[in-house]
Each structure stands twice: as C-alpha cells, then as structure tokens.
C-alpha cells in the first residue's frame, strides 16, 4: 500500500516535470509565430488584434533585408567552402592510419571546443595588424573555420560506413579514379554531405561570436542587426523576421530530410 503511494507520487512528479519541459521546448517558437501576426505596436501578449502589418513593414525595411541577403550569401559561400575543403579532408583522413592524420583531425575539430569569441577576436586582431580591411570575404573565412568540424564529423562518419571493396572493384574493372569518385564514392556518402551542408548553413546563418567582431557597417549580417535592434528597442518587426526564419528553417529541414535523412544524422551525433 505504502509502496504504491510512493510510486504514484514519483510518477506524478516525473509526469509534471516532463509536461513542463515539453511546454518549455515548444512555447517560445509558438510565441514568436503568434506575436508576429499582432496588429498592435507593442509585444503585448496575447495580441489585441490580428494583422499582417509587420510582414508588410518588413518588406519595406531595406535596413533588415540588406543584412538578411548578406547573411544568406555568406552562409552559402561558407557552406560550399567548408563542404569542399572539409569533405576532401574527411575522405583523406578516414583512410589514413598515419599519426599526423589523428593530429589534423583533432585540429579540424577544435573550433567546436574553443569558445568562438576568442577565435572571432583573434581574427579581428590579425586582420587589423596585417592591414586587411574587413569585408564579406573575411567574414566567409571565419565562418568556414566554424563550419568545418560538422563536415569533418558527418562526412567522416559516412566514409567510415563505406565498404572499401566497392572502390577496389570499380578500379579493377577499369574505371578511372575520377569516374570511381563520381559514380561510387560520392553517391554513397551523399547523405553525410547533405546533412553537413544543412548544419553548416544554419551554423553560419546563425553565427554571432565571429560575426560580432568581423561584420562591419558594410557587411552587416542578420543576427547582429537583429541584436542591435533589440538592444535599442523592442521592435515588433523582429517578430516578423523571426516568423520568416522559423518557416524557412522548417522548409529547409523538410528538403534536407527528403535528400539526406538529416534528423538521423543529427540525432546520432
């Protein structure tokens, strides 16, 4: 009798915390979507009435659209660079048993461990000392370094699962190295590449610690711009931007899921 009472209290506590936890995970995203359709001029919740006015206002806000486009371009460039350089490196490292390969692997993973602000600041100082002006190119360089660890891990995992016999077969049947790479290796590691591109793009698009130091007035990026807006005032246009970002991310996730089974890749990290 006493045991079942203890069990019941335990189950209630576990259930209650779980319910609270699930609500906590979901609420902020919902809140952002709901508030973006407010007709009011403050962040009053629940909204007094509904409208699309902040989305309309957003379309006319050049000072937000510009940074958003810059962010998209920088993220695209950083994704391509990190996927090509990181993918090639992951292929080379996975097959090598040399000691230097382990050292390089640790080096390529270290941006994930190091607080990114130190890295962002160090890049700023070096560019300043060398007299290199900050531009979109310097920003892409910094973002690429931050994105590489994801590519190394995810593509590396795909390469590990690749059966080397398939490549030997292709080569011994007379296919060239390039043909084998295009028709055998690449299709088999496609999932890892797609997943890492997806994560790399989001990482760059969302990056703050590096952009904070490397983005100047001419290369303003979206997260920094939104941060600056919110530091000054609680602008409802940010809700509309947030709504757009949430919907685009979900759409991107669906696409990546179709082409590469991203959730499995991220879940198994």
């Amino acid at each position: 009798m006493q045991r079942s009472l203890v069990d019941r209290i335990y189950s209630t506590v576990v259930g209650a915390i779980t319910g609270f936890g699930m609500l906590l995970l979901l609420a902020p995203t919902l809140v952002v979507l709901v508030i973006s359709f407010t007709g009011g001029i403050t962040l009053k919740f629940p909204p007094p009435n509904w409208s699309l006015r902040w989305y309309v206002e957003l379309l006319q806000s050049q000072e937000i659209i510009e940074p958003a486009l810059t962010s998209l371009k920088v993220a695209a460039a950083a994704t391509i660079l990190s996927a090509v350089l990181g993918g090639a490196a992951a292929l080379g490292l996975a097959r090598s048993r040399l000691k230097i390969a382990r050292v390089l692997d640790a080096l390529f993973m270290s941006p994930m461990v190091l607080p990114a602000m130190a890295f962002g600041l160090s890049l700023l100082l070096v560019f300043n000392l060398l007299g290199i002006r900050l531009s979109a190119a310097t920003l892409v360089l910094g973002h690429t370094i931050i994105c590489v660890p994801f590519v190394i891990r995810m593509v590396g995992a795909s390469v590990q699962q690749l059966n080397p016999v398939l490549i030997t077969c292709s080569l011994s049947l007379g296919a060239s190295r390039w043909y084998t790479f295009r028709r055998v290796t690449l299709p088999l590691i496609r999932r890892g590449i797609v997943a890492s591109c997806f994560v790399a793009f989001l990482t760059s698009f969302d990056n703050v610690p590096v952009s904070l130091f490397l983005a100047d007035a001419r290369t303003e990026v979206l997260p920094i711009k939104l941060w600056a807006i919110l530091e000054g005032s609680l602008d409802v246009r940010v809700a509309a931007v947030s709504g757009v970002i949430v919907l685009l991310t979900l759409a991107g996730l669906v696409c990546a899921e179709i082409f590469g089974g991203v959730s499995r890749q991220i879940g198994s990290r």
């Binding site: 995970l25 508030i35 919740f45 698009f205 919110l230």
Partner: peptide, 29 residues
Amino acid sequence: ITFLIMLPLLTSTVVRTFAWIVILGRDGI
C-alpha cells in the same frame, strides 16, 4: 519528444532569445 528537442536546436539563437523577451516582458505572457 524528438521533434520538440530538435525544434529549438534548429531555430536561430536570436529568435529564441526574442521569444523570451516576449514571454518575460512587461506586457508579456
């Protein structure tokens, strides 16, 4: 539960932080 855990991971940091401004603000939830 997996979906709920992934949701914040995929939403931008600024967006998540902005949500908390709406929740905790003077006229917030």
